[in-house]
Amino acid sequence: MQHETPTLYGVLAEFASADELVAACKRVKAAGYEKVEAYSPLPLHEVNHALGHTSKLSSLIFCGGLTGALTGFGMQTYISVFDYPMNIGGRPYFSWPSFIVITFEMTVLFSALTAVIGMIALNGLPQPYHPLFNSAAFERASRNRFFLCIEADDPRFDLAEAKKVLASTQPLLVEEVPH
């Protein structure tokens, strides 16, 4: 049988519990690997701690909210004062108390859209293909198993070495994942 050797994406280890995953993350990180990623069916703060993840989403959302507030208040002022002034109940054109509600709603709308779209975009979703989907075991990552992957483009990556490190963390399984 002749077939093309696919390029390697990384080495994947499977764990039965969150505890083991966290321990493995720490060990792999300590071994000096940078391009490491954990996969789990639920969020685990300890893993993010161990892998040193941070996010700039909050500041993005703040900008979104500010844009929303300015758009909301600006739009109402422009329309009600300059572009289409109407005398309603003898109230001043610039009736700022009446503009507060829509300004608030626009702030929330813009921030919420930024939050969700920002999260999706920063995560690179939607991703129709991910190399790990090639692994049959990885289907359990959305159910009850925990995975850790050392990626092949890590500068320190060496197949045998990576497998050895992962094997030392008592995984259920270690496998190579092709691209």
Partner: peptide, 16 residues
């Protein structure tokens, strides 16, 4: 959307 449960994704997800 091709969600794969990666830790980095979870982190942004939780923040959002």
């Amino acid at each position: 959307l091709g969600w794969c449960g990666s830790a980095r994704h979870w982190q942004r997800y939780e923040r959002a």
